[in-house]
């Protein structure tokens, strides 16, 4: 009973925070998300890089080509034609089915920090004037983990694409299932896979773009079920995390293991595409599958 009261109180709090986030996100659209300092050190090549240049270079290190992790809003800006994105399916509230201590507060915190309602956004957009549904996971929201809301929104995005008879492009970035929601998270794997199936049965195209990192329950469901699977260079892609594997087999993993290039070599990714060419590649693929009206 106490738990329930707590839940409702928290929900009331969330509502007001949510309202605030919604207002901010409307005014956000033209701003690009530049990391704090003007100069920062690239974690890969250790060079000091000018952040402004890096942002202009689609968040790729000019020195070593490292693809930095980006927020969903920035992903949108570098992928779709400006002013074409219409967000759908906003307004879900994450609940706390297992009454995990601190989970609701954590979610509220991420909502405020990221201005998102959950770790996935989707909507209508055009890529070089080709209409499509686009879905983007945001690894800044609790590691992009898939709980009930993410699973529902992913499913909804496929259903929206079916309704509009449109292809769908999904950028994945996820640490896997949302542990805090227990068995409900697990069931999202089945639910999203079925959404792929239904969309596919209508003869529609699904392109999944695996970005760093795509692991666990997301890899083992809709991420690996694309008609065409692209990946960004050096993205970590796998079912089990590297640390878990190292503990299991008791040895260090070889260089480049579970990286995008490795996955391409092993036959699980169609093509590794540099972020600078990603928009072109996507629009080409979408055009090739455009249906005769």
């Amino acid at each position: 009973m106490n738990n329930l009261v707590k839940t409702f109180e928290n929900r009331r709090n969330l509502k007001s925070k949510y309202k605030k986030a919604r207002t901010i996100s409307n005014t956000l659209s033209s701003k690009i998300d530049v990391p704090k300092g003007l100069y920062e050190q690239c974690p890969t090549c250790k060079e000091t890089v000018n952040m402004k240049n890096t942002v202009d270079n689609k968040f790729i290190c000019k020195n070593c080509g490292e693809h930095f992790r980006i927020r969903s809003i920035d992903r949108l800006k570098i992928t779709v034609d400006s002013d074409t994105f219409v967000e759908k399916g906003h307004g879900y509230i994450t609940l706390n089915p297992l009454f995990q201590d601190g989970y609701e507060e954590k979610i509220a915190d991420y909502k405020e920090k990221t201005l998102l309602d959950e770790a996935y956004i989707y909507g209508y957009a055009e890529i070089n004037s080709v209409p499509t549904v686009i879905g983007i996971m945001d690894s800044y929201f609790l590691m992009g983990s898939m709980g009930s809301v993410v699973g529902e929104k992913v499913t909804k995005s496929f259903e929206y694409a079916m309704y509009k008879k449109l292809p769908i492009v999904i950028f994945t970035a996820s640490g896997g299932a949302r542990m805090q929601e227990g068995i409900f998270s697990l069931m999202q794997m089945a639910k999203t896979s079925q959404a792929v199936l239904k969309h596919s049965n209508m003869g529609l195209l699904y392109i999944s773009v695996l970005t760093h990192p795509t692991t666990g329950g997301v890899t083992a469901s809709f991420a690996m079920l694309g008609d065409i699977i692209l990946a960004e260079p050096n993205a970590l892609i796998g079912f089990a995390g590297p640390r878990v594997i190292e503990q299991t087999i008791n040895q260090k993993l070889p260089e480049g293991f579970q990286r995008a290039e490795f996955m391409e070599e092993k036959g699980f990714v169609d093509k590794v595409v540099n972020r600078l060419e990603l928009k072109e590649t996507l629009s080409n693929l979408l055009t090739l599958h455009r249906r005769n009206q």
Partner: peptide
């Protein structure tokens, strides 16, 4: 199994495929 060879042979893909095909 979270092992090296299991990953190489596509553990994620194999599970995902089963979820879809069983449906």
């Amino acid at each position: 199994y979270p092992g090296l060879e299991a990953e190489e042979r596509g553990q994620g893909e194999a599970i995902a495929r089963n979820l879809l095909e069983m449906s």
